[in-house]
Amino acid sequence: MIRSRNDFSWTAYYDIDHDRLWRKTLSRSNYRCFGADPNRNWNYNWGKHSSTHNPCDYQTYAGSRPFSEIETRTLSSYIQNIDNLLVYVSLHSYAAMLLIPFSDSTQHVDNYKDLVRVGRRSIDYGYEVNRAEKYQGPGTAADMLYKASGGSTDWVRHTLNTPLVYTYELRGNSFHWPPSRIQEQGNEVTQMMLGLASEASILGYL
Rank of each mutant, 00 (worst) to 15 (best):
T106Q: 10
P178K: 07
L170T: 05
D57S: 15
H108Y: 12
D114S: 09
S77V: 03
D154L: 09
L170I: 13
Y88A: 14
V87P: 05
F34K: 01
V165F: 09
Y61T: 03
Y166T: 00
V116M: 05
Y168L: 15
S198W: 07
D19R: 11
S198E: 15
Y94H: 13
E71M: 03
R131W: 07
Q59C: 06
H18G: 00
N173L: 08
L21A: 12
Y127T: 01
V109M: 09
H176S: 11
L164I: 15
L160S: 02
I79M: 10
Q136T: 10
K113E: 14
L170R: 03
N6Q: 14
Y205W: 11
P101K: 11
Q185C: 11
D110Y: 11
A141E: 09
R40T: 06
L26R: 15
P163E: 02
L160F: 14
S27Y: 07
S105Q: 11
F8G: 01
K48G: 01
H49V: 05
I16Q: 12
D7V: 10
A95P: 04
V129T: 14
D7E: 12
N45S: 09
D57Y: 09
V165T: 15
S105V: 12
F102D: 01
N43K: 10
P66I: 03
P138H: 04
C33D: 00
D143T: 11
Y125I: 02
M97W: 08
Y44R: 10
L145P: 02
L196K: 01
P38V: 03
A148C: 10
D19C: 07
Y205H: 06
H92M: 07
A95C: 09
P178G: 04
I82C: 10
Q136A: 14
N54P: 02
T52R: 07
R121D: 09
N161I: 04
A95V: 06
R3P: 00
T140L: 08
Y112G: 02
I16S: 08
G119A: 05
A148I: 13
Y125C: 01
A142Q: 04
M1T: 06
S50K: 08
F8R: 13
Y166Q: 01
A200H: 05
R5K: 12
Y13T: 08
M192Y: 07
T74G: 13
R20C: 04
N111A: 05
T11V: 15
Y94T: 10
T74Y: 09
R171T: 07
N187P: 00
Y61V: 04
S27K: 13
T72I: 09
S29V: 05
S93E: 12
R20A: 12
E199Y: 07
V156S: 02
S9L: 13
D57F: 07
D154F: 11
E133D: 09
T167I: 13
C33P: 02
Y14P: 03
D110E: 12
W155H: 10
